[in-house]
């Protein structure tokens, strides 16, 4: 991808919006990084969340404890600290991740803890009678989960998951602190070169809206689709 660079503009030559207009490629390049970061982190968060969410409902105490430990540790510490830790502290243990990978890992693991809680609550919302019925029909525990419980739980979890996806998309902005060149980072750079603070951050905010509003609509549609039999 071609590297866009910020363009300075003489203050006298400015009209409202001209700084952003002149630097649109630079901001869009940042937005593309934001999209990639959000998409990859979402996949990791869903994978981790489903795994640990189910783990917290299995009838084996030590496994449940592992799930609980993961959720409580990552849900209860600030994302910024987790990112700093992944970026600055892991190298002392011999793992030196580039900024993007560190951000993707932190964001995925952090969001995964919230997803796990949503998945767990979805599973617990399905009545125990269904588990008992499935087991008495001869289905194994894994088969019960896969064919009976999770499909039903999934439709229940869509609205809260949608919330998490939107929150996570906005949380990608924290990655600018570890020098990931996302739309927030490029916005900061542009602001410091032009001092067109309101204009630049209005544009950055609009960039996030352009991602989250379609996401909201998509979540609503999925929800309608999944609950079509219940209406």
């Amino acid at each position: 991808m071609l590297q866009a660079t910020p363009v300075a503009q003489a203050v006298a030559a400015r009209t409202p919006g001209s700084v952003v207009a002149a630097n649109l490629p630079f901001l869009l390049q940042g937005l593309w990084v934001t999209i990639q970061l959000a998409a990859l982190s979402l996949l990791l968060a869903l994978a981790l969340g489903i795994f640990f969410g189910v783990l917290r409902t299995v009838p084996l105490r030590p496994l449940r404890a592992i799930g609980t430990a993961y959720v409580e540790f990552f849900r209860n510490t600030p994302l910024l600290i987790q990112m700093y830790f992944t970026f600055f502290a892991l190298p002392w243990l011999g793992v030196r991740l580039p900024g993007f990978q560190a951000a993707f890992l932190s964001l995925g693991i952090y969001t995964g803890a919230f997803v796990a809680e949503v998945v767990r609550s979805g599973i617990l919302a399905i009545s125990r009678g269904q588990v008992e019925a499935a087991r008495s029909l001869g289905l194994s525990y894994v088969q019960t989960m896969r064919h009976v419980i999770l499909p039903q739980a999934f439709s229940l979890t869509v609205p809260p998951l949608g919330n998490l996806v939107i929150a996570m998309t906005k949380n990608t902005s924290v990655a600018s602190a570890i020098a990931v060149q996302d739309v927030m980072y490029n916005g900061n750079i542009l602001n410091s070169r032009t001092f067109a603070t309101y204009e630049v951050f209005a544009a950055v905010g609009a960039g996030y809206l352009a991602l989250t509003v379609p996401l909201s609509f998509a979540v609503n549609r999925v929800e309608r689709h999944l609950t079509r039999f219940r209406r």
């Binding site: 020098a179 900061n188 750079i189 410091s192 070169r193």
Partner: peptide, 20 residues
Amino acid sequence: QGSTSEQNITKFAPAAQKLL
């Protein structure tokens, strides 16, 4: 991020990568 130092790096070493 946002320092004049960062802009000077671009001026004096344009090919260098920057970590901000």
